[in-house]
Structure formats: C-alpha cells, structure tokens
C-alpha cells in the first residue's frame, strides 16, 4: 500500500473514531450530571407520576450503557427517536430543517469563499499598504463583534429602514422558486458571509504570504519570470493546500454562526430547532442535533486534512 493511501486511510479511520467518541460525549453530556435528569427537566413542582412517565420515556430505568447503544443503533438506522415535547419523529423534523440550513450555508459559502480568497490576495498584493491595513482593521473589528449585532444592524438599516429585503426570514418557504427564496434569506446570507469573511481573508492572506516568502519564490523572481507566471506556476501549486485548509476551517466555523443567525432571522433551520429544544429541555432532539452539528464539523476538518495530505509533494512522490 502506498504511504499516501495508508495515511488517508488512517486519517479517515481517525475521523470515524472521533465521531464515535463524540457521540459518547454528547450522550454523556446529557446524563452524567448530579441529580435526577427528569427532576431538572420538569422542575421542583413536578408530580411523581409525571416524573415516572418522563423517566420511562427517556429510558432512565435502563443502565446508561444500554441506553447509549440503543440510541446509537437507532441513529445508524436513521431513527433519531421522538421529540418529548411534541411527540414528532425527530428524523422527519430534522430532514426538512437540515435542508434549509444547508441552503443558507451553501449560499453564504458560495459568496464568502471566492470573495475571501480574492480579498486575501489583494491584501498580499498591497501588503503594508492601505488595502491591507483596512482589511486587518476590519478583521480585528469583526472578531470582536457578536454575530447577532451584525444581524440586527443589517436588519435594522437594510431590512427595516431601507426596506430592500425582508427583515426576517419568516416568509421563507422551501418550495418557493429560487429567486423568492434567495430574496427571503438575503440578509441572513449577508450576515453569515460577513461572519466568516474576515477570518477566512486573514488566514488566506497569512497562508499565501507564507508561500510568497519562501526561497523558491525568490528563485523564480531571480529567473526573471513575470509576476503572473511566478504566482501561477510557483505560488499557486503550493498554496492550494493551505488555502483549502483555511476554507474548510471557516466553513466549520459557519456551522456555529448559523445557529445564532437562524435565531436572529427566525429562519426554520437546524440552529433554531436546536436552541428551541434546549430551552424546552427536549433531550432526544438536542442529542440528535448536537450529533449532526458535530458530524458536519468533524467532516469539514477531515476534508481539510485529506486535501493537505493529497497536496503534499513529499507524500505524492515518495522517495
């Protein structure tokens, strides 16, 4: 087996192991707590019957290990259980919402990724000059600003005062045509884009700068090559891996951003669903959502690693 295949297999196996451990962690996070879960869900005033019912429903009478494996096997079969509060099938409820969330994240990524790479290149091109300084100032500001501030500012000025786009995503219907849908979620997409843009831009800048400062770029310059040729032939092949890495890490960051943005704009996605059921203490829903968010996050990180391995010439052309 060539070393690269071996490494990839190892990395993917590690990702799966991580996912398994995370599922334990998420499950354990909801049980290994002092006191009675049923009590803490229903509060002090709960009647004994209600407590007993809830315990039975949660399977609290069984040992935790058995409960965990029951849950896990369910997950493998696409059965995420039923919601305590509504009695709905969780998988069905999540199915629709996951689609909505991915729609939002997809469009945010489509806009943010090329824009961030372009601006990152711009910052490298005009290093230490005003475009670069402006970009780093904006970055400093944006890592200090909570997502909901960006959300409400856009909602307040663009949505309410200017009325260009609907201020909330209440009008969003998954079955509407694309333009209507996009117009309904224009503001949430804008917020998500802004949230990841700064990070992605700054990290792209650092990654490309790192490549541009290496000795082989100097060699290329001293060959009298044109700037374009240098970038295309010498900088680009070595920048792919770090830039893809940056993109993936930030898309993972988007997973968190989406939770807040969905709440701000009342968007019917996974984030809103999760937050809603945390306050209702609907544990099966929270576990299912937590697992899905974690899986997406781990998956994106895994892709980043795989791309780095594939792009490494030392691994691609072993001695």
């Amino acid at each position: 087996m060539s070393p690269i295949v071996k490494l990839l297999a190892q990395r993917i196996a590690l990702g799966l192991l991580l996912l398994f451990l995370v599922s334990i962690l998420i499950f354990a996070g909801t049980i290994v707590l002092p006191g009675d879960v049923a009590q803490s869900i229903l509060g002090q005033s709960a009647t004994p019957e209600a407590l007993a019912n809830l315990r039975a429903e949660l399977g609290l009478d069984e040992p935790p290990v058995a409960r965990y494996f029951n849950w896990l096997f369910g997950v493998f079969q696409g059965d995420l259980g039923t919601a305590l509060t509504s009695g709905q099938d969780i998988a069905t409820a999540i199915g629709k919402r996951l689609g909505n969330t991915l729609f939002l994240a997809f469009w945010a990524a489509i806009i943010a990724v090329p824009l961030a790479i372009f601006l990152g290149l711009l910052a490298v091109r005009y290093r230490e000059r005003w475009p670069d300084k402006l970009i780093s100032a904006v970055t400093l500001a944006s890592i200090s600003v909570p997502e909901f501030l960006i959300g409400y500012i856009l909602m307040f000025f663009i949505g309410v005062k200017l009325g260009w786009f609907p201020p909330t995503a209440i009008s969003y219907r998954p079955d509407a045509d694309l333009l209507t849908k996009l117009s309904a979620v224009a503001l949430p997409i804008a917020v998500l884009t802004l949230v990841v843009l700064a990070h992605m831009m700054r990290m792209t800048r650092a990654a490309i700068l790192n490549v541009m400062q290496s000795a082989y770029i100097e060699t290329a310059e001293l060959k009298g090559l044109r700037m374009f040729t240098i970038i295309w032939r010498h900088a680009f092949p070595n920048s792919v891996a770090p830039v893809v890495n940056v993109v993936m890490l930030n898309l993972a960051y988007l997973v968190v951003g989406v939770v807040v943005v969905e709440v701000v704009f009342v968007y019917p996605g996974m984030g809103g669903y999760l937050v809603d059921h945390v306050s209702k203490r609907d544990i099966p829903v929270v576990q299912a959502c937590g697992l899905i968010f974690a899986a997406v996050y781990i998956g994106l990180n895994l892709i980043a690693d795989v791309v780095s391995i594939l792009a490494n010439p030392r691994l691609r052309h072993p001695k």
């Binding site: 000795a215 082989y216 060699t219 290329a220 001293l222 009298g224 090559l225 010498h234 070595n238 010439p313």
Partner: peptide
C-alpha cells in the same frame, strides 16, 4: 537580465527549489 544574463545559486538549494515541481522543469524554466 535576471535569469538570462545573470543567474543565482543560493546557499540552501533545498529551500530554493519549488517542492511541487520536477527538477527538470525548474532547471530549464529560465
């Protein structure tokens, strides 16, 4: 002038070669 009339050999060839390209391509490029 660079790479045509005057060329350069650095101290660390290991760093001065592009790791992602074959040697021949880099030697003949200029």
């Amino acid at each position: 002038l660079r790479g045509g009339e005057v060329t350069y050999v650095s101290q660390s060839a290991a760093a001065s070669f592009n790791p992602a390209k074959q040697i021949m391509e880099q030697v003949t490029e200029a």
